[in-house]
Nucleic acid binder design. Structure first.
Lengths: 118, 118
DNA sequence: GAAATATTTCGATGATCATCGAAATAATTC
DNA sequence: GAATTATTTCGATGATCATCGAAATATTTC
């Protein structure tokens, strides 16, 4: 990850509603959530939420796919891991006590989530 | 760490010159660096750098102390660790493969770091 | 193909940000 | 205590940000 990418990701997360949105998606798992559901949970008008989703997406922190008339947003764990890696990269200078961060989605219980989503 | 603190820390890091400054301080170790040295390395006028230091300090990411006529800035590893903890907090939902991030300054080999730095 | 639903695009507004020159403050040295 | 060195405060400027109403687009349903 280059510095510019790290700045973009940090900037995307450095806002109340986006950080909340992102954490919601992280907790929702790799299947993601429809935009409307996030809007209802966070309590934002849909166009404002679109604005925030765009920023998260441009930073590579979330992905989108269409499902019927809903847009499903999901956290991109790979980017979060790259960011954590970047932040801790030169952190400890050979001190083994500095463990790299990692965030792996919990084994995709696909079937269950799929059925409710579609 | 509360959401507001995380947003503050992320916002402080979400800027080219500040991220560079912060990483410089992290690499310099717990002894820190005088403001002038950072200004020379990054290539910013001193007043602009003060502006950025203020934001890093308000976010709790760096500390300052006076040493003669120099101000010595140092990274606050505790805050970085709290931020990494916050970001990974609900990340993996009981998946043991998600190790918490940590950043520990390298056992304060003061003498060595000092010599190369000054 | 018209009505209903889910989301995005457009346009406008007030707020905060990054930058830097110039003057002010703090500490040292002679 | 005057000159020097290191950093901060002040004030101004252009840029980007977050918000939301209103209209537009995509998809499904009847």
């Amino acid at each position: 990850m280059r510095k510019a990418d790290a700045v973009a990701a940090l900037a995307a997360l450095a806002q109340d509603h986006r950080l909340e949105t992102y954490r919601l998606l992280v907790q929702a798992g790799p299947e993601g959530l429809p935009a409307g559901e996030v809007a209802a949970t966070i309590g934002l008008p849909p166009n404002t939420l679109t604005f925030h989703f765009d920023r998260l997406r441009e930073a590579g922190l979330v992905s989108v796919r269409r499902d019927g008339r809903s847009m499903i947003y999901a956290a991109r764990y790979d980017t979060m891991n790259a960011l954590l890696g970047y932040l801790t990269e030169n952190c400890c200078r050979g001190d083994a006590s500095c463990a790299p961060a990692a965030c792996v989605p919990a084994k995709t219980t696909r079937r269950k989530i799929r059925e409710t989503a579609s």
